[in-house]
């Protein structure tokens, strides 16, 4: 029987979107059966259009910046878009896959995506904005799989 891995993805920023997709796609390539449970802000990673996934230097002091930037400057309008654009350029330059590409590779490798129904209701999200390849479920449904895994991560 194949090994199993479960991930809970709770963050919806560009930087924090990478770990779940990288680990899920890699585990699947190694023969693991993988499920990712997207809850709270993690649900943003299931949107058909991932262009709204951004990174912010605000409250993110560990983010390397080309020049030291005071918090007051980071608050200025457009800083988030600029940081996101720069981050995407950097990822591309270093041959790191885009989120879209990694997500597609996960789906291709039959990684199962579960969207938290409670979060959908809470934020009144429209399911038509999410990819069709995800299932909707709750904590108990996730435990049914997670309880029997070899690796279980919270991101």
């Amino acid at each position: 029987m194949s090994k199993k891995m479960a991930i809970i993805a709770t963050k919806g920023t560009l930087d924090m979107a990478y770990p779940p997709f990288i680990l899920a796609s890699t585990a699947a390539a190694l023969g693991y059966e993988v499920q990712v449970f997207f809850t709270f802000y993690g649900l943003q990673l299931l949107r058909k259009d991932l262009s709204s996934v951004m990174i912010s230097p605000l409250a993110n002091p560990a983010m390397p910046m080309p020049v030291p930037m005071p918090v007051m400057v980071q608050m200025l309008p457009g800083m988030e878009s600029m940081a996101t654009m720069m981050m995407k350029q950097k990822l591309k330059k270093h041959g790191v896959a885009s989120l879209q590409e990694l997500r597609d590779l996960c789906l291709e490798a039959e990684v199962k995506f579960i969207a938290c129904q409670m979060t959908v209701d809470l934020f009144e999200f429209d399911k038509s904005e999410f990819i069709e390849q995800c299932e909707y479920g709750g904590a108990a449904m996730f435990m049914g799989f997670a309880g029997d895994t070899d690796i279980c991560l919270f991101v």
């Binding site: 990288i22 796609s25 890699t26 270093h94 041959g95 790191v96 896959a97 490798a109």
Partner: peptide
């Protein structure tokens, strides 16, 4: 060439 982790592994698979 030029691809970063985990792409070389995924492409190999």
């Amino acid at each position: 060439s030029g691809l970063s982790c985990p792409l070389p592994i995924l492409k190999t698979k």
